[in-house]
């Protein structure tokens, strides 16, 4: 059962995210350099952090899948990557808007932060086609888990490599050398980050509940039709044995 505590989680997400955006709009001061435009930070950066953490979470679930062989871990990993890709798309679009407003270009190819995020996004974009290309369900789950672990290990490495890069146009939110964020900005930012993390958790749970319900309906249909041994049709999504 994935639907338990879903309502409480949804309400907490709504309150935190609305509160975070309200703090960003009315409490956090305007940036001395970028002015009002800097408010994009409160949606763009939390989305990016949560998307990357989601990929790492997917890798952890994939490790569990390989360790235990239980399909529910494969499904958890699959849904985490699915959600992170949606968040990643939002990061790329909001980032492009910010780049256009700040630097006058929609995209800057010699900026390591932007390009590395795009590489991570494109890498994970191949996850679903990879799954769909493998017909055998066991192989599909195992290969997908290996992919999720390898790509998941690449995420923190990539993050560190970018931080160590010498020249960049992209600002650092948690920079310590040049002061970083102003305290009121930090409060608004952390509330937005928490809200975004809760949103990710809520949507992940929604998706898991939906997949679980769909699997149960299919199982019930097979039982009523009397063909319990029938194989499910080819899909990129993992099948649930029992949850």
């Amino acid at each position: 059962m994935y639907g338990t505590r879903l309502r409480a989680l949804s309400i907490a997400t709504l309150i935190t995210l609305t509160g975070g955006f309200a703090l960003a709009a009315f409490y956090a001061p305007e940036d001395a350099d970028q002015g009002f435009m800097q408010k994009i930070l409160y949606v763009h950066v939390p989305l990016a952090i949560v998307a990357l953490c989601g990929f790492v979470f997917a890798a952890v679930c994939a490790i569990q899948h390989l360790r235990t062989g239980e399909s529910r871990w494969d499904l958890r990993s699959y849904v985490a990557i699915h959600m992170s890709l949606i968040f990643g798309a939002a990061v790329l679009i909001t980032g492009s808007i910010w780049a256009r407003a700040s630097w006058g270009h929609w995209w800057v190819w010699d900026e390591p932060t932007l390009v590395s995020f795009l590489i991570v996004f494109l890498l994970y974009a191949t996850y679903q086609p990879l799954r769909f290309s493998i017909e055998d369900r066991d192989k599909q789950g195992r290969y997908a888990s290996v992919f999720a672990i390898t790509a998941g290990a690449f995420v923190p490495l990539n993050f560190l490599a970018v931080r160590m890069a010498q020249s960049y146009t992209h600002p650092r939110v948690f920079a310590t050398a040049n002061g970083g964020l102003e305290p009121r900005m930090k409060v608004a930012f952390y509330v937005c980050l928490l809200g975004m993390a809760l949103l990710y958790a809520t949507l992940w749970k929604y998706e898991m509940t939906s997949k679980n319900t769909s699997a149960q309906i299919k199982r019930l249909r097979r039982r009523l039709a009397g063909d319990e041994g029938a194989l499910p049709r080819r899909s990129a999504s993992p099948t649930l044995e029992s949850t």
Partner: peptide, 9 residues
């Protein structure tokens, strides 16, 4: 631009 970014979300 700020409105557009939040609208995308």
């Amino acid at each position: 631009y700020v409105v557009a970014a939040y609208l995308v979300f």
